[in-house]
Simulated scan of single mutants.
Amino acid sequence: MKVYLDDERETPEGWTRVYWPEEAIALLQTGKVEEISLDHDLGDDEHGTGYDVVLWIEEQVITNGFNPPKIRVHSANSSAREKMEAGIGNIERYSCGSPLHNS
């Protein structure tokens, strides 16, 4: 499954559209997500942003050995994009062969 988190853009063909972080996280928890593409600004920052999904994945990788999907960022918010990409870098460092997964 490919998941597309966005509040405005058209959903690419073959992707499952979600509008809020908790919807994306619920799908990630199924273990069936192969790829996820995240927007940051979803129209209500108090409800959450795409960065919240990055933080959830990062926490799950570090604490539970979660196997993350391929993660893309399609946000036009350049500072938020940088923050999200830094989180994705952490996810990549801690997944796939890290000492946390070998114990």
Rank of each mutant, 00 (worst) to 15 (best):
G50L: 02
V33I: 10
E22M: 07
E35T: 11
E58T: 01
V33D: 06
D39I: 01
E58S: 13
T16I: 14
E46P: 00
D44N: 15
E23N: 03
A24W: 02
L28Y: 07
Y51S: 09
P21H: 07
G43Y: 09
I36Q: 10
T11F: 09
L42G: 04
V18D: 05
D44S: 13
L38N: 05
T11L: 08
D39M: 02
D52M: 06
D44F: 11
V18Q: 06
V54L: 07
L27K: 13
V18H: 08
E23D: 11
I36N: 10
I36M: 09
D45P: 15
V18E: 05
T30Q: 06
D39P: 05
Y51H: 14
V53F: 03
G50S: 05
D45S: 14
G14A: 10
D44M: 06
W56G: 01
H40F: 07
L55P: 00
S37W: 02
D45N: 12
L42T: 08
T11W: 11
T49R: 12
I36C: 08
W56F: 11
I36S: 06
I25V: 15
V53T: 03
A26F: 01
D44W: 12
T49P: 02
A26N: 11
T30A: 05
I36G: 09
L28T: 09
V18T: 10
I57W: 04
V53W: 00
L38C: 07
D45V: 14
H47L: 14
S37T: 13
E58N: 13
P12R: 12
G14C: 11
H47M: 13
D52I: 01
E35P: 01
T30D: 03
D39N: 14
L42E: 07
L28C: 09
E13Y: 12
H40N: 12
D45M: 10
G50E: 02
I57Q: 07
L55F: 06
V53H: 03
V53D: 02
L42N: 07
Y51V: 01
S37N: 13
Y19P: 00
G48W: 06
W20P: 00
Y51K: 13
R17F: 05
W20K: 13
E13S: 15
P12L: 11
T30G: 03
D45G: 09
